[in-house]
Design a protein around this nucleic acid. Structure first.
Length: 487
RNA sequence: GUGGCCAUAGUUCAACGGUAGAACAGCGGGUUGUGGUCCCGCUAGCGAGGGUUCAACUCCCUCUGGUCACCCCA
């Protein structure tokens, strides 16, 4: 026995070698540079980039349709801005000192020397479009949504890519708590419609002056405790004081607990504005968590800011319950699904008239990852394309005829699965089975001659021979979806 | 950007300093025109480049990519 096996393997190897080596020689001799030895190098995707494959398309499709549907019901118009923009536009609006600007932008020299970049996000682009296209003359507010790739040269991780996709909604031109609430509702509904439970973290960072006053207060407070701080926090103290409140180091916790809170530094107006937003959220029964330490990284935010997280996962720091069991355990850096807020200063800052605005962006890739997980564990179901019938053909004449018949039936509302590259009936029925069609049409030489076709009930296996001319009506009679037999 | 871990077939995983295995997927069969189950066969791989060694998928280095934490963010 083992001997036989060895022999087999041997001969297999020989034949494999032959077939493998032959084409190599041919190629390198005859095909020239195109298939030279050098070009045998295999190409990797660029770091942090990834292919979105056909088998993942279903998730993207569901996500897109959900967003589109929400956009339409909430009357957001679609805007598509270029992927390439002037680098300075983002540097100015997002702000120096932020990671996005300082280390994550893809910046190039254009042919004429202009510094251009791959957009790291789309809000400044939308604001630019608002200004450039004179949208201040549109009925206000102007509500727009977008969907597309963004680029940040970050260190990749699961759910963090250098090219990633965001879907975003912006409402420009009105300063109204209802705007903020509507946007939060939209973000919340997006995941709700997808069957992904989320929670919303909200906070207000008030006006620029209020925030600045708070910042100096916070810095003063922290300076006195400088020696007790972790290394990161010492850094934050000068670089990004608001982030001090986000520190996860144990040694900083007691200091954090005593630290001043931004809410206390907001003016009455700002506080009232925020309260009204929260009232709407209560009314809408959106599960939100007030997170006084929530600040957003980008310079242009004012007043309401919010972030979206998967519901099971909550920020440990904020949970004062001492549930040490971290059963969900998913609290990682990539758990934020989206975020946004009000940015009343951006448009003016970009050269437009002073214009209130608010918006948010959601990470599509992260939603895809979540959906995949949930689909695998059966928590959600992703609908797949359903075919009414499968068309199986046998023989050349039948194939040609089938081709034609399928093309004719295209506009009848009957969806047909088929595969003209498989010739055996067996393999075609296997495909029919995979597609879970209720019926398979079988057309062979005999049927072509007789002008008939077989309709096979896939469940019972019962077959019926019908005239080709009556095929459409015969199928429709069988299919429930055409059961409009309203006498 | 900082630190850690990882890299074997399309996928999930084995094994071994000396011939790389399995499962699933894919393809083809189980008599010529009948699927879901079952049986059989085939296809397909050591991320790249150096070094150590008689011999490296295995040890070392570099690169590349992934991943985790941090930074930060979507």
């Amino acid at each position: 026995m083992p001997n036989k096996k060895k022999e087999k393997i041997k001969s297999k190897n020989f034949s494999a070698k032959k077939t493998k080596e032959q084409p190599k020689k041919k190629n390198s001799e005859s095909a020239g540079a195109l298939v030279s030895e050098k070009s045998k190098k295999s190409w990797n995707v660029l770091r942090g980039m990834h292919d979105i494959l056909p088998r993942e398309e279903k998730y993207w499709k569901v996500l897109y349709h959900t967003a589109e549907d929400l956009a339409e019901t909430f009357q957001f118009g679609r805007i598509d801005t270029p992927i390439l923009e002037e680098a300075n536009m983002f540097i100015r609006s997002i702000g120096k000192g932020t990671d996005i600007v300082d280390k994550e932008m893809y910046i190039f020299d254009d042919q004429d020397g202009t510094k251009i970049c791959l957009r790291p996000e789309a809000t400044p682009s939308v604001a630019r479009a608002f200004i450039v296209n004179g949208m201040l003359n549109y009925p206000q507010p102007v509500k727009m949504w977008y969907w597309g790739p963004m680029f940040r040269h970050d260190r990749p991780q699961a759910g963090r890519y250098r090219q990633f996709h965001q879907v975003g909604f912006e409402t420009i031109g009105v300063m109204e708590p209802a705007v903020d609430a509507e946007l939060i509702l939209l973000a919340y509904n997006f995941y709700k419609d997808l069957g992904i439970p989320v929670e919303i973290h909200v906070n207000s960072i008030g006006l620029l002056e209020e925030r600045d006053r708070f910042k100096t207060e916070l810095t003063n407070y922290y300076r006195t405790k400088r020696s007790c701080l972790c290394e990161d926090c010492r850094h934050r103290l000068t670089k990004n004081p608001l982030r001090l409140l986000d520190c996860k180091e144990d040694q900083c916790q007691p200091i954090k607990d005593e630290a001043p809170q931004i809410i206390d530094w907001l003016s009455e107006n700002s506080k009232n504005y925020f309260m009204k937003v929260l009232e709407y959220l209560d009314e809408l029964e959106i599960p939100y968590i007030l997170r006084p330490t929530l600040v957003r990284g980008l310079d242009y935010y004012t007043h309401t800011v919010f972030e979206v997280y998967p519901a099971a996962v909550s920020i440990e720091n904020e949970c004062e319950q001492e549930n040490s069991q971290n059963s969900s355990g998913n609290q990682n850096a990539q758990s934020a699904l989206g975020g946004g807020g009000r940015y009343d200063l951006l448009i003016e800052d970009m050269g437009g008239r002073p214009t209130s605005a608010a918006g948010f962006a959601l990470g599509v890739d992260r939603a895809v990852i979540l959906m995949k997980q949930m689909a695998e564990t059966g928590q959600i179901k992703i609908p797949r394309r359903e075919y009414d019938v499968f068309f199986a053909q046998l023989g050349d004449r039948a194939k040609a005829r089938a081709f034609r018949m399928i093309d004719t039936l295209r506009h009848t509302g009957i969806s047909i699965g088929f595969n003209f590259y498989k010739n055996s009936l067996k393999s075609q029925l296997e495909l029919a089975n995979d597609l879970k069609v209720p019926y398979t049409l079988i057309l062979g030489q005999k049927e072509v001659q007789e002008g008939t076709i077989i309709i096979r009930d896939m469940e019972s296996g019962i077959q019926e021979i019908v005239d080709q001319k009556k095929l459409e009506s015969a199928i429709k009679r069988k299919l429930k979806k055409f059961d409009v037999s309203v006498k």
